[in-house]
């Protein structure tokens, strides 16, 4: 029987030179260097390892929401060994918060039913919320396993280790299931040249809001429960005593440091 895996990925900026739309407080995602979210590579790697064990009976779909240049992030995943790429892209998706993003991905997932396993990274390095994976599971009605640092697939059941406070929890769940994985799960492979060539030749399906049968009022900024009110470069609060040390003053600086350490706060 065919095992179907979907990996959710996100394209993130690789540079720190991110610009903001000052009216909406959302990120401007065009015209900057970007790549697949590093944590998503571990989800892709896990999927490809499952496929390594049963190459003829495993099918991996990569699903992402983003601007059209997010195709290149999907190609990175295809080059590692995934079979198919789908990009949800359209102006109506712009400005989505985590709820609207999860809703959009779930609409995309509906077109892929039935599947056995959905994998995603723990969080994206730009937004750093870690919310979209669990929200997708909730809106899809899928069982959810978060903080996965070990995962095995055996006869229709997933067994996973969860790295949580104070130790490791071991859980199991019959398929289908959604798992959010940690970087400790594995070491992502580098794509081979053949993989890159194959990825380049594969067509990536692009779907807009209509293509996934979405309720337009639930997409993008319009469908987002949250609004960014303002963005500031922070300033702070303490009454700092600043001590400038030059070559001659280094021992004096150390005296000052040690005196400060001895004094109770």
């Amino acid at each position: 029987m065919l095992a179907r895996i979907v990996v959710l990925i996100k394209q993130v900026p690789t540079t720190e030179s991110v610009r903001l739309n000052e009216e909406t407080g959302t990120m401007i995602r065009t015209g900057m260097d970007s790549a697949i979210n590093p944590l998503d590579l571990h989800a892709v790697e896990q999927a490809v390892r499952i496929k390594d064990n049963a190459p003829d009976t495993t099918h991996i779909t990569v699903l992402s929401m983003g601007p059209s240049q997010a195709r290149s992030a999907i190609r990175e995943a295809l080059a590692m060994g995934c079979d198919e790429g789908i990009l949800l892209s359209g102006r109506e998706f712009a400005g989505a918060d985590t709820w609207a993003t999860a809703y959009t991905l779930v609409q995309g997932l509906r077109g892929l039913f039935p599947f056995d396993l959905v994998l995603c990274g723990e969080r994206a390095t730009d937004g750093e919320t870690g919310q979209v994976g669990p929200m997708v599971a909730a809106l899809c009605g899928l069982p959810l396993i978060t903080y996965v640092n070990r995962l095995t697939w055996d006869e229709g059941t997933i067994t996973a280790c969860r790295a949580i406070e104070g130790g490791t929890e071991i859980v199991s769940c019959p398929l289908p299931v959604l798992a959010c994985v940690l970087r400790e799960l594995n070491e992502p492979r580098l794509p081979t040249l053949a993989g890159k060539v194959r990825a380049h030749e594969l067509d990536i399906t692009v779907l807009d809001g209509e293509g996934i049968g979405a309720d337009k009022s639930l997409l993008g900024l319009a469908g987002s429960p949250t609004r960014v009110v303002k963005v500031i470069y922070p300033s702070f609060q303490r009454n700092t005593q600043l001590f400038l040390a030059n070559d001659e003053g280094m021992e004096a600086a150390l005296d000052h440091l040690e005196t400060s350490l001895r004094r109770a706060p």
Binding site: Q237, R238, T240, Q241, L242, F243, L244, A245, S260
Partner: peptide, 14 residues
Amino acid sequence: QVADVGLVADLADL
């Protein structure tokens, strides 16, 4: 800006 005590110093030396 969040420090109570700040030392401006070259760490390679200090």
